[in-house]
Nucleic acid binder design. Structure first.
Lengths: 372, 372
DNA sequence: AAGCTATATGTAATCGATTACAAGCAGCCT
DNA sequence: AGGCTGCTTGTAATCGATTACATATAGCTT
């Protein structure tokens, strides 16, 4: 038996389960063949196998073929951990997502995954809103031994988490997408939220609305702030009233949209149109109104923000500001990968702003005769 | 300077950027301190540092404190790659998701992430429907050097991908969730799809419907098949007609629901109720009908499947079969982790079936006077 | 023929932890 | 005193690849 010649007793091959070592003891197969085993099977050194795999052009054709044949026959699969240790990188990126259950992020993730996987990176996701995701826990994800880079979709994380530039254990490159931490020195991919909000307001104005309300996101969120600011600016620019009671607090959720609808119903003087800072809130708003016997856009016009999948199939189809969600994720991944390639040289943070557009559908229409 | 006493020239500390080696050459800081550096700072061996970190009770209190202080002062963070290599595991699980953009999966993912992260596992996601995710590419994710286990949410993957039991490079433990490959020998977490479908049909029957149609998922999908089968069985059991033209083909998407609506409209004899195999199709169905001037449940009752977030806020609120999405993900993760802990001993595959329940809302009501 | 270059390959150090094994030491028992 | 036990700690092997450096060979130039 050829196997008996093998002096190293943990030689492994693809099909057999057991071998006999030099003492003829039946030993369990190590199971996973190593580069060593391939080298032996091909009659070359491990260095040559390694080169044949990662830089085929430097080995002769004959050797290359022998190596590939040995890989096939042994069923060898590279051990990524060992490679990563030696190369001091992980070929992985971590994505910090606030609330994975929110469908808004699923397309962003899809965009990230697409670009990252094509470039050979694994995508590791972490939900920052889970109870176990406390600061200490999250901190461990920011280690360069975990990932070569980070994409952060949560602007509500404590800045302190990221304040480690230049210190030991250095922070890997970070790119923010969608949300970001105001004033932080990181690259970001974002949309022009203020401009999007302004588009919504101008659209309503163009339809004839003069009394326009707004349902905003959670306090302290950059998206809330920028959309709110865009809303106010556009209202002011158009000479429309900015009335405190027409601004409703939400948190981007369906539920909070429904609550805003109740608040709207409770008003003496109601705005004839409402711009919601998220589609989910817009749907919740319209849905609640419908339960109370009101109809959109007959009784009030509604514009959303995001253009989630359901928007065009809502009743009525939702007029909204479309965010290129997939493209945002893809751009963030590309930016991060570029940044990782640039080495440790602290490149200045870049900001990429993607265009939004208004998807005019049926939930916004000219104000009814009852309106002012 | 104390630094000049250090003979190993790549000593590193937390704050300074540069050191001088034994030749007094200014060298770049290695940046990330290693366990070696901690050991030196604490005046102990690396073995002791390692023990203090991973099994604190075996080192004396004095030493432990010294080590922790050294960790703090050096800013040491463990290198997971090195640890994983030595321990021959990755502390990561891979989740194979069909179409990340589908919000249905986001809650499943959230459940997985929650359990996995609490147990110290990273979650790596792969979108199996991306163009780059060909069989060869996916194969590399099934390597045990990539992850300690796999959760597969895509039942349409080729079985061949998983047929490596006992061969070299062995497949790590696999758990299917939601979908699965018929006849494959893996553990699964699923719901009783047939029972769920039967609940929907019986609910409609209870409301008085005698003519019930069905919009099914993509052909060949196990969910499609089991729900279809449950539908047929319930119809037969109740003595209701099973008419070929009342069964519409869909693919779970909003769009396909809308198409089914057009098909329904084109019928001479229309069923008074339609059970859709997904909420997305139900929404698309209702939405399309609404565009054509029809109203649910006045003109037709609709029941969905899944209970996605928007369901209760749809117009009308959608009657649907609720799947515990978060719990499915959590159960899959728990099962996988248990399986990984059980070692390589091939435990028999287990099947966990989670209960579904009917969420009766407004989209299904007794048939109108016009109906038979 | 000597010397040089280019190509292909092998040897062994290296990445940074964990852990088997050995050993030191204090306390206790006989 | 000698031996035993239990508690700490250190030494060095190990995980499985990559890669710097050395070396061998062939082909070419002068």
């Amino acid at each position: 038996m050829i196997w008996d010649d093998i002096s190293v007793n943990h030689f492994s091959a693809s099909i057999k389960y057991f071998f006999r070592d030099s003492n003829n003891i039946r030993t369990l197969d190590r199971k996973t063949p190593r580069i060593q085993d391939v080298a032996r099977a091909a009659g070359v050194s491990t260095a040559t196998v390694s080169r044949a795999i990662s830089n085929p052009s430097v080995v002769s054709e004959a050797t290359r073929n022998a190596v590939f044949e040995a890989i096939r026959s042994t069923g060898y699969q590279i051990n990524l951990t060992a490679r990563n240790l030696r190369q001091r990188r992980t070929r992985a990126i971590v994505v910090l997502v606030p609330n994975l259950g929110n469908p808004f992020f699923s397309h962003i993730l899809a965009g990230i995954e697409q670009v990252a996987a094509s470039a050979g990176f694994s995508v590791l996701i972490v939900d920052t809103k889970q109870p176990h995701a406390n600061e200490g826990q999250l901190f461990t994800y920011l280690s360069s031994s975990r990932a070569d880079g980070l994409i952060v979709l949560d602007g509500s994380l404590p800045v302190a988490l990221f304040e480690r530039r230049g210190t030991a254990g250095g922070l890997p490159p970070v790119v923010f997408a969608c949300e970001w931490i105001a004033g932080s020195p990181f690259s970001k991919v974002m949309i022009d939220n203020a401009a999007g909000a302004a588009m919504a307001i101008r659209h309503l104005h163009g339809l004839g609305h003069r009394c326009i309300g707004h349902v905003s996101g959670p306090r302290g969120n950059v998206l809330t702030d920028t959309r709110l600011q865009g809303t106010r600016a556009a209202l002011a620019e158009l000479g429309l009233p900015v009335r405190r009671e027409w601004f409703f607090d939400g948190d981007f959720s369906l539920q909070s949209g429904a609550e805003a609808a109740r608040a709207w119903l409770a008003l003496d003087e109601r705005p004839t149109a409402v711009f919601c800072a998220s589609d989910q809130m817009a749907c919740g708003f319209i849905s609640q109104l419908s339960m109370e016997g009101y109809t959109v856009p007959r009784d009030v016009s509604v514009v959303g923000f995001d253009d989630i999948d359901i928007a065009r199939h809502f009743i009525p189809p939702l007029t909204t500001v479309r965010q290129p969600r997939n493209a945002i994720g893809a751009a963030a991944a590309r930016l991060l990968i570029a940044q990782m390639g640039a080495g440790t040289a602290d490149a200045p943070p870049v900001e990429e702003v993607l265009a939004v557009e208004l998807a005019a559908r049926r939930s916004a229409a000219p104000p009814g005769p009852a309106a002012g």
